[in-house]
Amino acid sequence: MDAFQETLVEELGNKTAFTIPLLGGIPVAESVVVSWIVMAVLVILALALTSRLSVRNPGKIQVALESGVQFFNGFLKENLGPHWRPFVPWLGTVALYIALSNIIGIFGLTPPTKDISVTAALALMSMLLIYGAQFRYNGPLGGLKKFAEPMPLLIPINLMEVAVRPLALCMRLFGNILGAFIIMEMLKFVVPAVVPAVFSLYFDLFDGLIQTVVFVFLTTLFTGEGIKEEDSPN
């Protein structure tokens, strides 16, 4: 039992892959290295899949790719209103990054989203996006006025949300992935073969994709709240 405890505690911590010998040593966490792998895979896939796009004769892969992008476009159009277009690349990048990070446990790597610093960075960027968009599309004054909606009484709560929203995003993603990771580690310790593979389908694949959708959906929803015009039909 002691060995089990030890392994678990060791697995829970964030390992440092290596340290850059600059400014007194900058630690590079394992999650950052795995992130680079995730990025490399995404970039290579993107390059390979979009190298021969055809307007007139799309292949099967291109059709699938286009339907995916179109689905995402439609989702953002519905939730962000008329200014949806500039948000597609960022939110799409975040979605792909989180999705591949979450399910990379299947391939034996540690999911970067298990590191709270990574989810904190993601949530920080979401916060910048949400409130940046609110001020970008409403002007400085209109952006401030948005905090008094739907009624001035809610100003304190709306202001608290500036911190609460990213914190919730960060913790939700981190907690889910960490929880799944812990369960999978325990399972692997108790039953090393076959059974973890079955559970991995749920905890790594399903939960990982659900958490991706939740993160991107909430970020989109919050951004939409800040930039949607109330009386606009879109």
Partner: peptide, 30 residues
């Protein structure tokens, strides 16, 4: 434990990935 270097690295990673995918994936497909 929030690690500043990991946060900074992740932000950089995300921005780099965003710039690449914006051009290569979303730009081309759209």
């Amino acid at each position: 434990d929030f690690q500043a270097s990991t946060i900074v690295f992740t932000v950089i990673n995300l921005v780099v990935l965003y710039l690449i995918l914006k051009k290569v994936l979303f730009g081309r497909v759209n």
